[in-house]
Design a protein around this nucleic acid. Structure first.
Lengths: 343, 343
DNA sequence: TTGAAAGCGCTAACAA
DNA sequence: TTGTTAGCGCTTTCAA
């Protein structure tokens, strides 16, 4: 017993294969009578026919496939994004091809090559590099591309989280607790959200009537707990701040360790705020106060945009912003009258 | 400027397209002279030709694609597995199609349907359900399938982690610290590793000269921190155990919360051991003692097996076991002379 | 609205 | 070892 083809369906319905094909693709030009369509659809259903995407793809030059590129699948930020993308794509009969670039531009361009060979209809690119040549080339050729959480290039649609809003809330929250010396552990400069968050942090401080100092910002080499731990030690060595805004939750995780290693307590001695609200954030002790980003929503919006773009590559370039919200848990507390941290 | 085809390469090399095709696929029957091969390869390289997988797939009935099914991409256990799979597949010129079943058998069979339509050359199935119909059907049809961390069906190759080894080490470790009442928070019965771990736990206790009691085992409804917290409360309510072996690290995360909520301390009052050594395990406070499973290795081995199986579907069915190792951190300590836990 | 014919890019089968 | 031929399954012309 071999695989069913459109010919089998056509024969069963008593029509030409081309007619059957058209009946099963109702949106395409060349409409078929309701009767015929019904007959074909019934035949297809009864036989259990499913189109062969390979044959279709070869002829139609569409693959029903979207290439999804993330910088690091091991970072808990991305799986929910991917999930959101897949859910929406599936609703539109599209499949996601997923790959992780490991923050490597060379690898990114290799993977794009592979995707292109497979004739992806579009691309969702969340790899966090600054504007880079391969992606720019793609966009330049008019291939449908949606950027997620990347420095917005006006030429491609994008989805970003409105980090500034949540960071503003975080700073206000800390200010309300009496903190006036608030540090920031920024991520690596190679990642575009880093700059966004750092600027939002400075703006929020000013908005709260605090003049940010250079010495309050320490750069973590990566968005990892290990890098966060080191950076936090550096920041606390300076003995100025009573609260820390970590560049993301993984960096915050490193802060817990650094704070404890110095014999300090969170939140009594140092208040800590993360960004992302990753799955385990509420389970840390103390539970992490953090700027929640709805990652799945980022993914869903990205999928929506790419679906639109595939349907009409010439449509206006849309930029979507997903709102963020401070989630207050246990890692923030009123500032001590006198900071206990300095040497 | 259109896409390059094999005809372009053939023309440039002065040979027939079929010859060019063969030259670029050295493993296939019908060997080509070294000279010709060199000429073709050079032409292909110079022109920047890459085969069109769609055309190839239609003709050869191979897709260069492996369907990878995981139960839940949001569970930190799986991303490293996926990563391992992808790395090895890529070395063999194969791509992974990835999907998450959400522990839903219905969804699993839908996804397999999609994969089959795309003519995957093989399947790596890590969805954790007990032996189920769709997968059994696949195996029955002789389609290359590799099972990861599932109840071994002798008919399909499989990769499992040797949980018994690490669990044995964990129990010995606790015994050595003076614990004799060691509880276990088992996962849901629907997941096949649950039974494996529970049995290993009982066997290890007996091996350590301890008679396991029924009341020492509580079942968590899911492999999540929330379920672990509830189950841990139940276990501690019984006031018997001084140490807990959690069914996995997520369950262990819930235990931290439960222990703290009862005014107990880990590890002074209750020792805790997890299973998996997930990325954040070492960053929890206290750092989690856990049975490390090399998830990426699970993935790599699975990929190796599926590659072999695709090459020779009739080859002997191989079962690979990946070793586990106890990682001692800070969540385990000597048993207190008198347990402080009971009411 | 439907049918006829052609061909997407590639490689398997056969022939030389 | 290489060339010839044909066709994988589908959809898109073009014609009726």
């Amino acid at each position: 017993m071999d695989r069913l083809t459109i010919k089998d369906v056509a024969r069963a319905a008593g029509v030409h294969p081309a007619t059957a094909s058209r009946a099963l693709n109702p949106l395409l030009p060349g409409r078929i009578s309701a009767e015929t369509t019904a007959r074909v659809v019934q035949a297809a259903t009864e036989l259990g026919y499913v189109v062969d995407p390979v044959g279709r793809s070869l002829r139609s030059r569409r693959s029903g496939t979207v290439g999804v590129l993330v910088p690091d699948l091991l970072n808990p930020f991305y799986p929910p994004v991917v999930r959101g993308v897949q859910d929406v794509l599936r609703d539109h009969g599209l499949e996601a091809l997923l790959a992780s670039t490991d923050n490597d531009v060379r690898r990114e361009s290799d993977l794009l090559e592979v995707f292109r060979a497979r004739r992806c209809d579009g691309y969702v690119i969340a790899s966090a590099g600054r504007p880079d040549a391969p992606v720019a080339a793609l966009v330049g050729e008019g291939v449908p591309v949606v950027l997620v959480n990347r420095l917005t290039e006006a030429t491609a649609p994008s989805v970003t989280s409105d980090d500034a809003r949540g960071i503003g809330q975080a700073v206000d929250h800390l200010r309300g607790l009496g903190h006036t010396a608030i540090g920031h552990l920024a991520g690596p400069t190679a990642v575009s959200v880093t700059a966004v968050r750092e600027q939002a942090y400075r703006a929020a401080l000013r908005g709260a009537g605090i003049t940010p100092r250079r010495s309050w910002v320490v750069r973590a080499g990566q968005y990892t707990a290990a890098a966060g731990r080191l950076a936090c030690h550096k920041l606390l060595d300076r003995g100025e701040v009573t609260a820390v805004l970590a560049g993301n939750d993984l960096i915050a995780v490193g802060c817990y360790a650094a704070i404890a290693e110095r014999g300090l307590r969170c939140p009594q001695d140092v208040s800590l705020v993360g960004i992302n609200d990753m799955p385990l954030a509420e389970w840390l002790r103390p539970a992490l106060t953090t700027v929640a980003i709805d990652q799945a929503e980022l993914g869903r919006q990205a999928a929506r945009l790419i679906v639109d773009r595939i349907a009409d590559p010439a449509a206006a370039v849309e930029h979507v912003s997903v709102t963020t919200e401070l989630v207050v848990r246990e890692s923030t507390a009123p500032a001590r009258p006198a900071a206990r941290s300095s040497a």
